[in-house]
């Protein structure tokens, strides 16, 4: 596929714009001096990747991402940030002094991964069709071929739920213990 053919497709314009948005907001997640701003930039990055999934005709996964990640996980994050008393304004102690080394490491990682995928897959194209994947196929796969991972994942969720509640429970102060015994 030549560069001209690639640029001529409107799908690729959408891809380019959304990719730029994702990368910009992701960089702001890791460099923003304010915790709540970082979480909101992550909302934008996740919304952008939901659009990516739609381009790849994975409509169900895109909506799962919006419902679970943005609608629940990020709300949980914001809740946790507010309970650990995020200040409104800038918090200077958010990034340590190892920025250059970390940037070098991540650039090397990017180089290695990109070189690996470019040399392996060259100009292979993605075989998407114009319509989204039928949910029926996903349902058959989850409850057919992948039923054991499905059950294991539900146990993971149960253990995380029970573990989270147990770990975060507040032990009663001695005064409250006294009150509880008196009742």
């Amino acid at each position: 596929m030549t560069v001209d053919a690639w640029i001529a497709e409107p799908v690729n314009w959408v891809f380019s714009i959304v990719a730029v948005v994702i990368l910009f907001t992701a960089v702001r997640v890791v460099t923003s001096p304010n915790v709540v701003h970082a979480a909101l930039y992550l909302v934008a990055a996740l919304a952008g990747s939901a659009v990516m999934f739609l381009l790849l005709s994975a409509e169900f996964v895109a909506l799962v991402l919006v419902l679970v990640y943005i609608g629940a996980v990020l709300v949980l994050f914001l809740f946790g940030i507010m309970i650990t008393r995020a200040p409104t304004g800038f918090d200077e102690g958010l990034s340590n002094d190892r920025k250059l080394v970390s940037a070098a490491i991540s650039l090397v990682l990017l180089g290695v991964l990109s070189w690996a995928s470019l040399s392996a897959f060259g100009t292979d194209t993605v075989n998407t069709v114009g319509s989204p994947t039928a949910t029926e196929i996903l349902g058959d796969a989850i409850l057919g071929r992948f039923v054991i991972p499905f059950e294991v994942v539900s146990f993971i969720l149960l253990s995380a739920l029970i573990g989270g509640i147990t770990v975060a429970r507040r032990d009663l102060t001695p005064l409250e213990e006294e009150e509880r015994k008196a009742v």
């Binding site: 709540v36 409509e59 909506l63 919006v66 419902l67 609608g71 914001l78 409104t88 989204p132 949910t135």
Partner: peptide
């Protein structure tokens, strides 16, 4: 949309983020 019901529910859960942002940012 083939996933109309799911889409409506997913996007109505976005309001939660907006409400928390409103509550926190008002100082």
């Amino acid at each position: 949309l083939e996933l109309g019901v799911f889409y409506a529910l997913a996007l109505s859960s976005l309001a939660t983020v907006g409400i928390i942002a409103a509550g926190w940012s008002s100082a």
